[in-house]
Amino acid sequence: MTLPPILRRWEALLLLMLVVIAGLNIVYSPFYLGVGNIVNLFQLSIEKIIVALMMTLIIINGEIDLSVASVMGLSSCVTAYTFHAGWPMGWALTAGLASGAVAGAINGFWIAYVGLPSLAVTLAGLIGYRGVARILVEDRAYGGFPEWFNQLGQQPLLGPLTFSIIIFLAMFVFMAVVLHRSAAGRLVYVMGNNVQAARYSGVRVKRVKLLLFVASGVVAALAGLLYSARLGSVRGDMAVGFELDVITIVLLGGVSIFGGSGNLLGVGLSILVILNLRNGMGLADITGNTQTSVIGALLILSVLVPNMARGLHSKLQGRET
């Protein structure tokens, strides 16, 4: 048990997983390393990984947001509904984003100001916001968006990169700076570690939590709009179940579900691992359902393995002393 500290880190394990999976992919498919495939790799799950970035902050803060997938559905449905009611596309998109902000503010109000557990509130949100989306579009499918909107979702904008990928990269850099290089980022960690201590040292705990949930709502809404741009149509059940993938990405990235620890480097690596894993399973003709099962197992293992490692470690240390 005398590995150098750098190798004992979770990120090292993720890097190893990534190398193995990418290696297998390269061996199995000659097309894997093409620019087209790499872009495609990101493009197919781009909305989930955008939401995962914001979820990282929420979970580090010691909370959870189960309503993100429903907010994605809500924002697309609001946009589709208002657009078909005759609003210009720009205003319809604004309405979609605003619906995300409102949904996030409702979550944040109950969690931060009334003190309800985020698990219960966002579970209610998961059901309720999806319900509102369904009321708006019922069982219809809305299409016929302006050409520029569909192109934005599907065509490369800058070199081979699409608009969504540019947004993702920009958000990743922005979040990394905020979380790891700014005072606001430290607040997120402090509150996740010990919310009482944060309150006693004068942190405006309630306001920070509310802002985080509003931001989570807006980011989920943005992701929902990008998703509808990519698909070119909107339905009431779009993005159902995405919260599983999003939370898996974050926890696999080494973010503690109890809050207070984790970093964006780990989440970035975990995004690459999961994207490559899905791509590899696709190449190996494994169906979408089995893929979902594997993601579910990965979610459990990403918490179970560190737990058991810690237990084993403390047992070994106990024996030595």
Binding site: I127, G128, R130, G131, I135
Partner: peptide, 12 residues
């Protein structure tokens, strides 16, 4: 389609 919205509200 109203069912889910009402259920969510009820839980909250």
């Amino acid at each position: 389609f109203w069912r889910d919205a009402i259920l969510g509200l009820l839980i909250l």
